[in-house]
């Protein structure tokens, strides 16, 4: 891909990068740092932009890898994820009240966040970012078949969880 503009092609991806980072590390401050690190790293690789086939998947891959690094470090430091979830829930922005209540919003977010990393990332990239199976496979560095397996398991768990909340 030639003639990549940082401002026009990469900066508009910040929200998507933030949502993905947030889904993985589940902490607002850390997710912001990850997005910043991703963009800075991308900026420093300007010489390689011409070789990038798809800037969107490339950037999301970089963001996911940085987020996974953070997650690994955090796990090594024995920080509990529940604490992070609790903090984040308090800081989360209010959703559109006409569509969904704050309580429902938090419930849906928590149920997705409780999925294993690969399952919640596939759910995030497919159901929220609207990406194709191939694009998700490229971002996650796995096969399309593995994407479908992870998505299937993730959706099945969500189905059970939501059904259980109503009973």
């Amino acid at each position: 891909m030639n003639n990549i503009s940082f401002k026009n092609d990469i900066m508009p991806l910040t929200e998507r990068l933030f949502r993905l980072a947030m889904r993985i590390v589940q902490n607002r401050e850390e997710a912001e740092d990850i997005v910043q690190d991703t963009l800075m790293k991308l900026w420093s690789q300007q010489a390689e932009w011409a070789d990038i086939q798809n800037i969107e998947t490339y950037t999301l891959t970089m963001c996911r890898n940085l987020a996974l690094d953070r997650l690994e470090k955090k796990e090594r430091q024995n920080l509990t994820l529940n604490e992070a979830i609790h903090d984040q829930a308090d800081n989360a922005p209010a959703p559109d009240d006409q569509l969904i209540s704050r309580q429902q919003h938090d419930l849906a977010r928590q149920l997705i966040d409780q999925l294993p990393e690969k399952q919640r990332t596939t759910v995030q990239l497919r159901d929220i970012e609207g990406m194709t199976y191939q694009e998700i496979a490229d971002v996650m560095g796995i096969t399309v078949a593995d994407v479908k397996v992870n998505l299937f398991r993730g959706r099945q768990k969500l189905r059970e969880s939501f059904a259980a909340t109503i009973r």
């Binding site: 569509l99 849906a108 997705i112």
Partner: peptide, 9 residues
């Protein structure tokens, strides 16, 4: 709830 959450996100 799930689909509405995804739509708002």
């Amino acid at each position: 709830t799930l689909f509405a959450y995804e739509a708002t996100q």
